[in-house]
């Protein structure tokens, strides 16, 4: 219905264009930094989950139970709420509770447990026989983690990164609540609230494009590094 009214390019004043360009950078900044930090926390967490799990190489009910609980709790909190709940922590870390950098903190807190679960899953997929072989060679757990689990789970882990990027980019659309900006925020505020169809379409097209690029790079990388299949 709104589309039929035609595409009015005149809304793209220099200021609006600048806003969209800024939005691209804000989105990339929030997504990439949060994913990176999310892995800094989530990768070790996921490894510990996989290792201490019932079928891990060093089962530990207490450690697994506590981490599993924390991960579940954090994953259950809607991102919107998290965004607001952690603002005191945000202020402590970033120095202010609004803006793109302030959004990174809740994004990381939301992403880390989610990443941890994916990492846990990737590592659980590693063939038990290969782990047993390493144990039979006298490998210690640290060697098994770094030289067997991560290496063999590589392809799956890279696919996980791709999924994480897309998910975090989606979360970042809510950054506008704390003034984080980004394309998602522009799409919501101008497209949804103000019925600026043109701005919404353009920002969404850019978002789709960004997700596609990430997806493409991720899949290409995972294929390139996958030695399990005959090429």
């Amino acid at each position: 219905m709104i589309l039929s009214s035609g595409f009015d390019w005149s809304v793209f004043t220099p200021k609006v264009n600048q806003m969209i360009v800024d939005g691209v950078w804000e989105t990339l900044y929030m997504t990439l930094v949060s994913t990176l930090m999310g892995y800094v926390l989530g990768l070790p967490l996921g490894i510990v989950l996989a290792v201490t799990g019932e079928k891990g190489i060093a089962p530990n009910k207490a450690v697994y139970g506590v981490l599993d609980f924390i991960v579940n709790i954090t994953r259950s909190i809607p991102f919107l709420i998290l965004l607001i709940l952690v603002s005191p922590i945000t202020k402590l870390i970033v120095g202010k509770s609004y803006g793109s950098s302030a959004t990174v903190v809740p994004l990381v807190i939301a992403a880390a447990p989610f990443i941890a679960r994916m990492v846990e899953g990737s590592i659980q997929e590693v063939d038990k026989g290969v782990i047993e072989a390493a144990q039979s060679m006298g490998a210690d757990n640290f060697t098994i983690i770094t030289r067997v689990l991560i290496v063999e789970a590589k392809t799956s882990l890279i696919v996980g990164v791709t999924i994480a990027l897309g998910t975090i980019l989606g979360y970042s659309a809510m950054a506008g609540i704390v003034g984080g900006g980004g394309l998602g925020d522009i799409a919501i505020r101008y497209g949804y609230y103000r019925y600026d169809m043109e701005i919404m379409v353009v920002t969404i097209v850019i978002l789709v494009f960004l997700v596609q690029i990430m997806q493409y790079i991720g899949m290409a990388l995972s294929k390139l590094t996958d030695k399990r299949r005959i090429k």
Binding site: M19, S87, K96, S97, Y98, G176, I177, V178, G179, Y190
Partner: peptide, 28 residues
């Protein structure tokens, strides 16, 4: 919107936030 500001003599930075968040950044 902030895009409609044509004069800004004090170079103010208008920070747009979700309505419920505005009061929370009062001290910042």
């Amino acid at each position: 919107t902030v895009n409609d500001i044509v004069e800004n003599p004090h170079n103010l930075e208008i920070q747009e936030l979700e309505a419920a968040q505005v009061s929370r950044v009062k001290d910042e």
